[in-house]
Design a protein around this nucleic acid. Structure first.
Lengths: 373, 373
DNA sequence: AGACAAAATGACAGCGCTACCATTTCGGCC
DNA sequence: GGCCGAAATGGTAGCGCTGTCATTTTGTCT
């Protein structure tokens, strides 16, 4: 339809410079300075304002300025305000890079997450961020895309910023990643999952138990011909653990999945769920319930049912995982398992900063009986 | 005058290590190390590995190690591998804090976003991150919660890490924030919106035009009794601009909103939409269409209709904003306006790193005619 | 007023690395 | 071999700040 918009530039701009052997040749035009070359609206020197400038302007020593700015150590009220005034006038912004190097302790916290696709991770991050911000820490984030090697690289990269702590998702990492985390000398929090061996602090809920609870719920409601619709399990280890737990209960009851569908890669998980259910139903395996790898998929399945007049749960029951807010607001609330994600983030961050001993915190989960089972 | 300062061991003898004499004595009653105090499961001393250690181990100078590690400058193949081997054996992780301070140019990029609630911001971040990662940059993130003062504080805080660039959402900032961004000496990208005056680089689409296009679409489809359901507009300036554009078109056609509902604060936007529509309909204003501040609200409204057998669009048309993936997958696809969020992030990041002149890039938007209008 | 502890302040050596030299070594080439 | 430019390497100031310690300035009691 309408498509206003001026020039619709492409993303084809060349990256500024590559990491790899860029130099060597004597040519080297544009040594890329341009860093901190501005400020000082007046005609004054265009150097970045340092603590020395503030000290001179206030007529005191650098250490005193440092003490005032960090609110640390005793300084007379008169001196303090003199310094604050000078700092303000000069528009001084402290250089935390230098401060970090000098003090050997940073106000940076590393965070490595697998994705920012659905709202699960952002919610955890929100919880983490609340705590970090209150304590004056800044998060440095990396997204691994469910790729263990990328995660390893990210961890290394983030550790090179010498954070005061690091939060990562999950318990599964490459050996080298684990070694780095163990040896980096700062606290490590592993989030979301507790099924496995952690490095230091572990905050999450049991994926296996969640899967088991889901199966038990469906069985308790007399569903017997159960199918599974999931995304690629290779990358999402936690989804795999849930599936494993679910399947274990089925086996213990002499059952098995009647049919299943995996969707390796689909733009959206909702779509994967929709397509998965469509395929499953087309095969007419006489399913009475479907377990999904998560709520996104379940939502897609639910939409499919709505569109094709499949009565839920009479004709087909649906069960998801995550307890996304939206699953509470669909015409029929979805049955799912809700995890306290924001709280998880908060707890994790708090433990990280608190300096206590290594722990495992099971934040548990809540089985939400919606209208789809 | 006395001569303060510590002893600076000169070139007398090669001291075992540590210029700081931290080691040496066997006593060592933990003088506040706790930082970097771990690793090395073996009995070895636990000092952080520095470039000097690598240099010594490889039997070369520090500068050469630096050259190899940064892949910058010419080093013989033999020396290179010798150094890489030493670094690997020592499990060396470079200290980018020190590197940044020394080189006066960091591999950090600041990002300030209003929230991580729905998937809009994460999608933009994903685009940004793709580009940053490829260029070896690390994002430092702050979340302002739609609070201008918090944004200001975050900007200051992030600038103190001396990033090489900074991305912020929107064009509206406090005066001080704007001054800091202008004066910090690095490139600034303002994302999402282009209606207003930017600082340096602006990448987004016109909110006002989006609102207008939405109104024109509804009018073209003969809807005349239009209502509005939105969240708190005070914080979300962009939603306000869309509303303004929409309303302008209504006025130009001698119309106005028949009724409207604002939801200041609700746990979920979807819920706000649901509740908003319920209230609007209860008032029986004879609406034939509802414009929502965004897709989350629209989704909630749609769910309400589904649940209460309100035929969409016959009884009521719905129109949202964002073009979230999920709106494409509901039983009836929602009519909405889709913005190229990932691309927006990529373009913004590329421009930030490319070092070109200040620009405004209108990435446009696409009016998606779903089944709800 | 003198004595003494406490508060206030300043001086300066690093933190680990990179940029910029200076110096040494290497490869052709007469 | 001797010469010379280029490649390879080492030495060493800082980068802006903080921690330590020395010094000076209070304030409080006798």
């Amino acid at each position: 339809m309408k498509k206003p918009g001026r020039k619709k530039e492409n993303t084809a701009l060349p990256p500024p410079r590559s990491l790899k052997g860029k130099k060597g040749s004597a040519a080297e035009a544009t040594p890329v300075p341009s860093f901190q070359a501005v400020s000082a609206a007046n005609g004054d020197r265009t150097r970045v304002v340092t603590i020395t400038d503030v000290a001179q302007r206030a007529g005191v020593g650098e250490s005193t300025v440092s003490r005032v700015l960090r609110n640390h150590g005793s300084v007379s009220q008169a001196t303090r305000s003199k310094i604050l005034k000078a700092a303000d006038e000069l528009n001084y912004v402290p250089n935390r890079i230098a401060g970090t190097l000098a003090s050997m302790s940073s106000k940076l916290i590393g965070i490595v997450v697998p994705s920012v696709g659905n709202t699960v991770v952002p919610e955890v991050l929100a919880g983490v961020n609340t705590v970090l911000e209150a304590a004056g820490f800044q998060p440095v984030i990396g997204v691994s895309n469910y790729d263990a090697l990328r995660e390893e690289a990210l961890i290394e990269s983030i550790l090179s910023w010498r954070p005061s702590g690091i939060l990562v998702a999950g318990l599964e990492h490459t050996d080298r990643a684990r070694a780095m985390l163990r040896g980096c000398g700062v606290r490590v929090v592993e989030l979301l999952d507790i099924d496995g061996e952690g490095i230091d602090i572990v905050v999450g809920s049991s994926q296996r138990m969640a899967g088991r609870a889901s199966a038990e719920h469906l069985l308790a409601h007399s569903y017997r011909r159960i199918g599974y619709v999931g995304h690629d399990i290779r990358g999402d280890i936690r989804a795999g653990k849930r599936l494993e737990g679910f399947r274990a209960v089925l086996h213990e009851n002499g059952l098995n999945f009647v049919d299943q569908e995996f969707h390796p890669s689909m733009a959206s998980s909702v779509e994967a769920g929709r397509v998965g259910v469509a395929r499953l139903l087309k095969r007419q395996s006489g399913l009475d319930a479907i377990y999904f790898s998560n709520d996104d998929l379940a939502l897609g399945g639910y939409f499919h049912c709505l569109e094709h007049d499949i009565s839920v749960p009479r004709d087909l029951a649906l069960f998801g995982y995550n307890g996304l807010e939206i699953t509470r607001l669909t015409p029929q609330p979805l049955s799912t398992i809700r995890t306290p994600r924001v709280a998880m983030g908060k707890v994790g961050a708090n433990l990280l900063l608190s300096g206590g001993p290594s722990t495992i915190v099971d934040v548990g989960f809540e089985l939400v009986v919606g209208a789809t089972t």
